[in-house]
Amino acid sequence: MAKGKTPQGAISIKNVTKIYDPEGVHVVAMQDCSFDIAAREFAIIVGPSGCGKTTLLNAIAGFDGITSGEIFLDGELISSHQKQIKPNVDRMVVFQSGALFPWKTVMENVIYGPIVQGTMKKTEALARGRQMLNQVGLAGIEDKYPEELSSGIQRRVEILRALINEPRVVMLDEPFRGLDAVAKTVMHEFLVGVYCTSPRTMFFITHDLDEAIFLGDKVVIMTTRPARVKKIVTVDMPWPREHHIKTSKLYLDLKGEVLEAVHEEAKKAFQAGERELA
């Protein structure tokens, strides 16, 4: 990266409101939500199940609009009531369940973006793909098909597929959900590794609070519906993150803080949900 070039990927969310209206049932999913993510910052979004977190992800990615408010990316308006920018490799999304193309090999999957966009020639893309796979120790699997690989490896390939496009923002929606404790640890190491090698803004949604504090620069805690920012906890720990920090006093204090806030909101959401069912 050239020296002096301004880092990119700063996100500014201002007074975002989202109202769903399926069949005349007025649902205020989000109300007046505001916060900022600095360029190349690793931001974690946590909160009770509901539309809030995914609403923001969809708006930034360009899948769905917002009812009012504004979202800026590096000062440029990307979402408002009137304007909704189209999805783009600049703001890549990695979803929960396997989205690798099953009919393509690992390498074909990884280089898909640049090839289809025309941003790289095939030889260039192959070289870059190979480099990325080597960097994370996945060299031998280039020609394998997704179904031949474990879900842990599939996830990592998916993330590489997103990163090869050098997006300004990477959005991950509970990407490691359902993996057991050990597999998650490996995923975290992997993500820390790739993030440190070429940092870019991360918008990471999760329910796992250890994951949140271990990976994040800041943890944004959302309220239940209508969602807004309840609290932002700054995680001031050095990069690259290592596992031993999980027993440090700072980590424990932060975890306690986040835990309390999330738990409070979870209880509210649960009670609201039960009332809906009755």
Partner: peptide
């Protein structure tokens, strides 16, 4: 494979 290498990277 992969887990050890990621360790190595960090």
């Amino acid at each position: 494979s992969g887990s050890k290498a990621a360790f190595d990277l960090v």
